[in-house]
Deep mutational scan, measured.
Amino acid sequence: MASQGTKRSYEQMETDGERQNATEIRASVGKMIDGIGRFYIQMCTELKLSDYEGRLIQNSLTIERMVLSAFDERRNKYLEEHPSAGKDPKKTGGPIYKRVDRKWMRELVLYDKEEIRRIWRQANNGDDATAGLTHMMIWHSNLNDTTYQRTRALVRTGMDPRMCSLMQGSTLPRRSGAAGAAVKGVGTMVMELIRMIKRGINDRNFWRGENGRKTRSAYERMCNILKGKFQTAAQRAMMDQVRESRNPGNAEIEDLIFLARSALILRGSVAHKSCLPACVYGPAVASGYDFEKEGYSLVGIDPFKLLQNSQVYSLIRPNENPAHKSQLVWMACNSAAFEDLRVLSFIRGTKVSPRGKLSTRGVQIASNENMDAMESSTLELRSRYWAIRTRSGGNTNQQRASAGQISVQPAFSVQRNLPFDKPTIMAAFTGNTEGRTSDMRAEIIRMMEGAKPEEMSFQGRGVFELSDERAANPIVPSFDMSNEGSYFFGDNAEEYDN
């Protein structure tokens, strides 16, 4: 993207840094990872977990959730003011799984939030270390993106479920800051804005008074975040219109849905970061690795190297396929839920299948599930090659597409044709070009129609051997075009429920 120079890199967003050079960025990201790792080690000690239990991804998720809940100030305040039966607002906890007599047992633990905050700050040299908290939120978000298709949420806001490739980060909490905003897809931002506008339509006082002023500035800020994701002048001009509207209503909703559809071809720039579970960072720190000293990046080879040398386990339900569970977590670790499966298959070195073909449910185990038949197995999170994460949407291309997802959002900077089903997408653009945004709409449609099938995206960008740390010898991959490109292809993934 041309304006790259004016933006802070995501590592800076990730670490609240002012302008830093590459070495400083690597050190501050490393410091953040160190903090998460030290916190995780301490929690495993508190909970008396064995090494194996500490490497269980379900335990990692519970521990991450506990610290996120302990620092969720708004919710904590709300819980104190609106006490609900049987919930102690000062405590947080969740299921911890232990191996007892050759069987997995679930144990519900409860801790004072104050105590968890103390352990977290102690692991982070006394700081609140917001960057580390956001990092864990993005890992949870990436896992949700890989596990669930947001059909219901899309339909509720009037969008087409086939636009799911635009929904990265749709389950990120509001408090995820600049680093969170960077990884949100165009569809996620559109959905947040539509929800806001709908509230304004239904509630006369939404934009009024002292609160209304705050609401208005939040609305304009979200519009600017979305505008910054678009790469064409016409899309940005249309966002200006939406932002400046005196009284946002149905016309703005129409414009936003139009823009979301246009992003299936004229893709937005959305950041991709490899955020790993805390149970990967903990053992690495415990083994003596100093992330701050060595430096770390979320968008280069580092996460690949770390996963190459990590042992992570997962509980497996009786009829689940461990290899499929591994694929789910591998995609989440690489922030690749909406990437082209052919690119992923090449990088991973084994075939990556669409969601609907995987015999696996989510990673988390519900409290009512029976533990008797639970097994555990090693997650295979290694890769054959590594590639640089991208934040450009890439230019655009036609490809055989599917009944489910009709476009992709690249996660890796790797040369390819970008699949999208042009006739299906263009069919949504018939007729409606009147109104105050008509010239911009016409211009956007013209650009979409001009998108050429034979153009290559990320020209000359390749993948790298894991021994090639400096990215000196790019390998331009070859793809098996007979395979499906979309992950949520004609899909039956479970729906995400809060």
Rank of each mutant, 00 (worst) to 15 (best):
L264D: 09
R446V: 01
V190M: 05
N205W: 12
A129V: 13
N395W: 14
N370T: 09
A471E: 06
G30F: 09
P410L: 14
S478G: 12
I347F: 04
V109A: 07
P322I: 01
R470P: 11
F489L: 04
N205C: 15
V329K: 14
G5L: 13
G435K: 08
W104D: 07
T390C: 10
L418A: 01
T92Y: 11
D302G: 13
P277V: 06
T215P: 03
G228D: 10
W139K: 08
L47F: 04
R156I: 06
R204H: 12
E375M: 10
S297G: 13
G200N: 13
T15N: 01
H135F: 07
Q405K: 02
K357A: 09
P248T: 06
V186L: 01
V408C: 02
M222P: 08
D439R: 02
M440L: 12
I57L: 15
D112V: 08
M191I: 03
L154D: 06
K214P: 09
V155T: 00
F458G: 10
G462C: 05
G249E: 14
E252W: 11
E244I: 06
V280T: 12
G249D: 10
V352N: 10
W104E: 10
S262R: 09
D145M: 10
A179K: 05
E454F: 09
L381A: 05
A493S: 02
G177S: 15
A337F: 04
M456W: 14
N397G: 06
S3A: 00
A411F: 09
R446F: 05
E375H: 15
E449Q: 14
E81N: 06
K7M: 11
K77W: 09
P95D: 09
S392A: 00
D240M: 12
Y10P: 05
V109H: 05
I197M: 04
P477A: 06
G249Q: 10
R267W: 12
G282E: 06
G54V: 13
Q364E: 05
F258V: 08
V329Y: 10
K87W: 12
K48N: 08
M440K: 02
K98Q: 04
S269H: 10
D127Q: 01
D468I: 06
M105F: 00
T171Y: 07
G187P: 03
A2Y: 10
I197H: 12
L172P: 08
G393Y: 10
M238Y: 10
L264I: 03
N334F: 02
V285D: 07
R441Q: 11
D128C: 12
W207H: 10
G30M: 09
Q12E: 02
D468L: 08
M426L: 06
L49W: 06
I316L: 08
I445K: 03
H82R: 12
R117W: 14
K31C: 14
K325P: 11
A27I: 01
S457V: 01
T157I: 14
E64Y: 02
R461I: 12
R243P: 02
I425D: 03
N144Q: 15
G158A: 08
D480Q: 03
L264S: 03
N432R: 00
E320G: 13
L110K: 03
A237L: 15
R199F: 07
G268E: 14
N202F: 00
L298V: 02
A278W: 09
F338H: 09
N368Q: 15
S314Q: 12
I225K: 12
K293D: 07
P95H: 12
A336Y: 07
S274A: 14
W139H: 10
V270N: 10
V285Q: 07
S345V: 12
V408D: 09
E24D: 04
V186N: 12
T147G: 08
G349T: 14
Q231M: 00
M66Q: 05
N59T: 01
T232V: 01
I388L: 12
T215W: 12
C223G: 02
L226A: 04
M1L: 14
E73R: 01
I388S: 05
